[in-house]
């Protein structure tokens, strides 16, 4: 009798694991991200080996601010590879040029940059860093369409979760490129990434997360690298 029961339990466990595996495969295929990148070129670009760029996040908005982690992600990817560009870290640049690039004081237009560069201490620091382009990244990731519910329970014989949840992430970022030598905007790269994430739970919750912001970062960085190099 005991042997029969343990066999039954084993069978149920096996079936549950198989179901979980199947769900994981189905939703891994489903948890994809769609990314669109647009480039708008206003002027010629190119960069010498001794020159660098700085990528800064816009933080003037009242409802959101560009996350420092996203800006750092773009910077790290732009500096990678054979065509990598020297990128000055955002925090280092802002602290070094304090108080000129704070949310309240940062130039909003290229004309403001021209006025700012008349300040000898600012122009000297920028020249010391060898900065050719300032890239302003502006955007955010929004989560919407949250659906489903998961309930978990713990008893004397063990615990488990059952249910299903899903949500959609939408990352929208713009990168405006300013040429420091001509005080002109030379172009804008926009990226829009969307993806659906799933969280099925059959005993164990299996997060199937769409890497929306990471894909937006990758796409933006690749395009930005090509843009600045003048490819």
């Amino acid at each position: 009798m005991t042997t029969d029961n343990s066999r039954k339990i084993k069978r149920i466990r096996g079936a549950l694991l198989q179901a979980t595996g199947a769900l994981a495969i189905i939703f891994t295929l489903g948890a994809c991200t769609t990314t669109t990148v647009d480039e708008f070129r206003q002027g010629a670009t190119g960069i010498e080996s001794h020159e660098s760029i700085v990528i800064l996040g816009r933080r003037q908005g009242s409802t959101y601010e560009t996350r420092e982690e996203f800006v750092n992600c773009v910077g790290q990817r732009v500096s990678r590879g054979a065509a990598g560009i020297r990128v000055i870290p955002e925090k280092e640049f802002i602290d070094s040029l304090f108080p000129w690039f704070e949310p309240r004081t940062a130039p909003l237009r290229t004309a403001d940059l021209q006025v700012l560069m008349e300040e000898p201490l600012v122009s000297q620091k920028i020249a010391d860093y060898g900065i050719r382009y300032i890239v302003w990244v502006d955007g955010q990731t929004e989560t919407s369409n949250r659906m489903g519910s998961i309930s978990c329970a713990v008893g004397p014989g063990g615990g488990g979760c059952f249910g299903f949840g899903s949500w959609e992430d939408d990352s929208n970022f713009d990168a405006r490129v300013w040429d420091v030598s001509s005080f002109a905007s030379v172009g804008t790269i926009s990226t829009d990434a969307t993806g659906q994430s799933y969280l099925p739970a059959v005993v164990v919750p299996i997060p199937l997360i769409a890497r929306v912001e990471a894909n937006a970062c990758n796409s933006l960085a690749v395009q930005l690298q090509q843009f600045v190099n003048g490819d």
Binding site: F98, P99, E102, P103, R104, T105
Partner: peptide, 10 residues
């Protein structure tokens, strides 16, 4: 406080 420093100094 950083905002204070930038506003005050400028």
């Amino acid at each position: 406080l950083r905002d204070l420093a930038s506003n005050f100094s400028l």
